[in-house]
Simulated assay, not measured.
Amino acid sequence: MSVFVTIEDERWEAVDLEALAERACAAALEHLSLDPEECEISLLGCDDERIALLNADFRQKDKATNVLSWPSAERGAAEDGAMPEAPEPDTFGECELGDVAISYETCAREAAEAGKSLPDHATHLLVHGTLHLLGFDHERDQDATLMEGMETEILGKMGIADPYRD
């Protein structure tokens, strides 16, 4: 698995964002029967100020968020609740999936508010971001049900509790 990590906020180093990303992204890919060794993801570990700028630039939302994803290709399903298209390797046998950014402050605040560990919550957000790169979304009801169910299954295999249950 190739997760290329850029750390802009040094607080991510204390939770070993790189190791969390390798584990979370590989788990999401393997769950979908994709070979992690063939896939590439770029990850930015940043702060709220940086992610708010990215959110404003790309989503026209002038506020910080926990995670953002930029898929390298449109893979979303046309039908609500259907599986997205699987990525196709290029001529070198690699799949460039896209880019993910995750904000330390928002992630840490959400984890504390939910009574979760920061590594577990960050892992959830990394799985979530990886699924977005693979064409999963939560804009339509059945798509959201599919994506949340998949996140719960992946995290369960990793020993992390269902993030959607109180």
Rank of each mutant, 00 (worst) to 15 (best):
R59F: 15
E105Y: 09
R140A: 09
D35C: 15
M83A: 08
F58N: 14
A101C: 05
L125G: 00
T65D: 11
A64M: 15
R59D: 06
K63V: 09
S2M: 06
R11Q: 09
V100S: 03
E8G: 06
V127E: 00
E74H: 12
T65F: 09
H128K: 01
E105H: 14
R165G: 06
L44H: 05
K116M: 12
D120C: 05
F4V: 08
D137P: 01
D62H: 07
G93E: 08
D47M: 05
G45F: 03
G115H: 13
A78G: 13
C107D: 02
L44M: 13
P89I: 10
S103H: 07
G135V: 01
T6Q: 08
A108V: 08
A52F: 13
D141W: 11
D120E: 10
K61M: 10
C25G: 03
P89T: 08
L155V: 05
G81V: 13
L118D: 01
G149H: 11
A73W: 11
A77D: 05
F136N: 01
E88T: 10
E139A: 11
A112Y: 05
E79L: 10
R59T: 15
P36I: 14
V15C: 01
S117Q: 13
R109M: 15
L126K: 00
D99I: 15
E13N: 08
E74L: 14
A77S: 08
E74Y: 10
G156E: 14
E22T: 05
E96I: 12
D62P: 15
Q60Y: 09
A73G: 08
E139T: 09
G156Q: 14
P119V: 12
R11M: 08
D90P: 09
H124E: 04
G98E: 00
A19W: 06
D47Y: 13
M147Q: 10
C107K: 01
H132Y: 06
M150S: 14
E94C: 11
S2F: 15
T130F: 03
P87T: 15
R23C: 02
D162E: 08
L32C: 12
E8M: 10
P163I: 02
Y104P: 00
I160A: 04
